[in-house]
Design a protein around this nucleic acid. Structure first.
Lengths: 96, 96
DNA sequence: TCATTACTTGGCGAAAATGCCAAATACTTT
DNA sequence: AAAGTATTTGGCATTTTCGCCAAGTAATGA
């Protein structure tokens, strides 16, 4: 199958937001439910929930329902590689 | 220095667009000027130019002026790793 | 200097993303 | 069944992004 550029963009876009990137970092450390993430992040709980939906639909997260809680986890083990690449890009370009 | 989440998001966001991702792929194969990229991509030339500015300011691109042309190149060697991570995420999540 | 080629910048309407509130759903406990 | 807890969904105003057009800048050549 051909690598669809639309799917790729959806994945990348799902991390192209400060709150969602923060969520990814938090979930890389510890599987959590929406309420726990909300405590770290602030703002509206429903906003956090919607960010989680975006990330889950893009493929970054898996989730598991246990009683009243829904626990979210990072679905990949490549976030460090991904961010290593991101951090390697210098913003101060000596260009034309 | 602390890794600033705002800078990271700017880098990620710069690739979170179908045309810009396409540009990254094209430039990974071959250093090109705006006109050459425009031939591959279509649309308005000024739009392509603006996408290049976004990518350059984020750090993805370097550029070099030679006469009338401005040649753009990928500034990193980690695009493959980056995309490998992106492609590893399955969209069809078997979640709640 | 004038015309041409290559590219960028300004501006603006259209589309998409964001965040908050209110309401709805789902499960548990009493 | 009713109340309580955890989370999602709907809706909407605000902000951001996008793409095209027109105009501007920069280097080259006649």
């Amino acid at each position: 199958m051909t690598t669809n550029i639309v799917d790729r963009v959806a994945v990348i876009k799902a991390l192209a937001h400060p709150t969602r990137l923060r969520i990814a970092e938090l979930l890389a450390k510890k599987t959590s439910c929406v309420g726990e993430l909300h405590q770290q992040i602030g703002g509206d709980l429903s906003t956090v929930s919607k960010h989680l939906t975006v990330m889950r639909e893009a493929g970054w997260l898996t989730c598991q329902k246990t009683g009243l809680h829904i626990y979210y986890s990072l679905a990949c083990d490549c976030l460090d590689d991904f961010l290593r690449c991101v951090d390697s890009l210098s913003t101060n370009s000596n260009c034309c």
